[in-house]
């Protein structure tokens, strides 16, 4: 029944996904800004390079893994948390989405 309703009104599911993604993005930005980056005054967007720009060091990835697991309940295995795959918030969200 639920599937039929969602199929009839696809915008509902899209809105839920978009809202979920924005919520996740805000949560990640807040955590990274408050806990991990070297200069908390820098404005972070979904596409700000974090590690390659030197804002965040790669040790922070361990802390991020623990945060994602505790706060979001998603276990992302270490080989998927690389400097490249976690360089921006947008990439983090797509990796987290794959392991939900």
């Amino acid at each position: 029944m639920k599937a039929a309703i969602l199929a009839t009104f696809p915008r509902w599911t899209n809105r839920k996904k978009v809202n979920g993604s924005i919520f996740l993005q805000e949560k990640l930005i807040a955590f990274i800004r408050d806990e991990l980056i070297s200069d908390p005054d820098v404005e972070i967007t979904a596409d700000t390079p974090l590690i390659s720009s030197g804002l965040m060091d790669s040790f922070a990835l361990v802390t991020l893994q623990a945060f994602i697991e505790k706060e979001l309940g998603v276990k992302v295995p270490a080989p998927r948390i690389t400097v490249d795959s976690f360089n921006t918030i947008a990439r983090m969200i797509s990796i987290i989405g794959l392991h939900r």
């Binding site: 361990v62 893994q65 295995p77 270490a78 080989p79 948390i81």
Partner: peptide
């Protein structure tokens, strides 16, 4: 080392 020692 990072994936199988450092992280765990």
């Amino acid at each position: 080392i990072r994936d199988y020692l450092f992280f765990p």
